[in-house]
């Protein structure tokens, strides 16, 4: 036995069956949802034949269009703003002299991850109700963008900070040594090397904002229906496979988005 033996997970008793059960529980419902989007009948529980008709009617549905546009406006804006904030926060907390309140700031940024979302939702609702009542301020869809931006920041912050902490500080010393001002060193060295972290932070923020329900449900005003809210409203009526088609479209968009950001991150990391 010359070579030290490492444990092979596949040899562990029960590994195979537990893994299969987990995969089934996770993905079979999704798979069934996707299959029934092709059902030619009008029930989501009774299979009659194959059709793409529900995709057609979903894509022609004006309410769906409206919800999709709202969702994209909110998610994209919230992703961009929260990623910028998270990047600045991560730099301000790793690339500076330790300052008083540094660990407190870290806690505050990450607290939203631990607070139950319904509490954040109620608090956000009260906040907007308060400023509407006191100052008559209502930003319309801006309320939702603001709320999404705030709760996306910790999600974007985590991977960016991790990347900054893993980065070799000597590279920044080397840049300074080679006459790069702090701004140039950041622009030419730190930022390009940080891109994979920023990409995964942004992807995470986008997904979190894209499918947020709880906060959106409470904060959204009339005409501010997002896709999750739209789906929620639909399933309270008699359901048709159109819902399945819409859900499948959402799923494919998410998968596409995550894959692209993953590929970009991997490309940059090379």
């Amino acid at each position: 036995m010359a070579e030290p033996r490492t444990i092979d997970i596949k040899d562990q008793p029960g590994f195979r069956s537990i893994a299969i059960i987990c995969l089934l529980v996770l993905y079979v419902p999704v798979l069934i949802l996707m299959i029934f989007s092709l059902n030619s009948g009008s029930l989501v529980t009774h299979w009659e034949g194959v059709t793409l008709g529900w995709y057609g009617s979903a894509l022609r549905n004006a309410e769906f269009h409206n919800a999709a546009r709202n969702t994209l406006i909110i998610s994209v804006t919230a992703t961009i703003v929260s990623t910028i904030c998270a990047t600045l926060a991560a730099i301000g907390m790793t690339r500076v002299k330790p300052w008083r309140g540094l660990s407190a700031a870290f806690m505050v940024i990450n607290l939203p991850l631990m607070v139950p979302e319904i509490i954040t939702a109620v608090a956000t609702l009260s906040f907007f109700a308060l400023i509407a009542g006191m100052f008559g301020l209502n930003f319309g869809i801006g309320n939702l963008i603001l709320a999404h931006t705030v709760f996306c920041i910790p999600f974007a912050y985590m991977p960016i900070r991790a990347r900054l902490e893993d980065m070799d500080l000597t590279l920044e010393y080397a840049a300074a040594d080679l006459y790069a001002t702090p701004w140039n060193a950041f622009r030419r060295i730190t930022l390009p090397l940080l891109v994979p972290g920023i990409m995964s932070g942004a992807a995470l923020a986008f997904i979190v904002s894209f499918d947020d329900f709880t906060i959106t449900q409470l904060v959204a005003g009339p005409g501010q229906t997002t896709l999750p809210l739209y789906i929620w409203n639909q399933i309270r009526r008699p359901m048709t496979p159109e819902i399945n088609a819409i859900s499948t479209i959402l799923l494919l968009v998410s998968i596409l988005f995550v894959s692209v950001s993953f590929l970009i991150a991997r490309q940059r990391a090379k």
Binding site: L171, Y173, A174, L178, P182, A185, L193
Partner: peptide, 20 residues
């Protein structure tokens, strides 16, 4: 003076070449 204002350059133990 900060390092970027000194006409002095360094060869680092880990080389610190820019990977990108």
């Amino acid at each position: 003076l900060p390092p970027f204002k000194r006409p002095v350059n360094t060869v680092f133990q880990s080389y610190a070449l820019f990977p990108h």
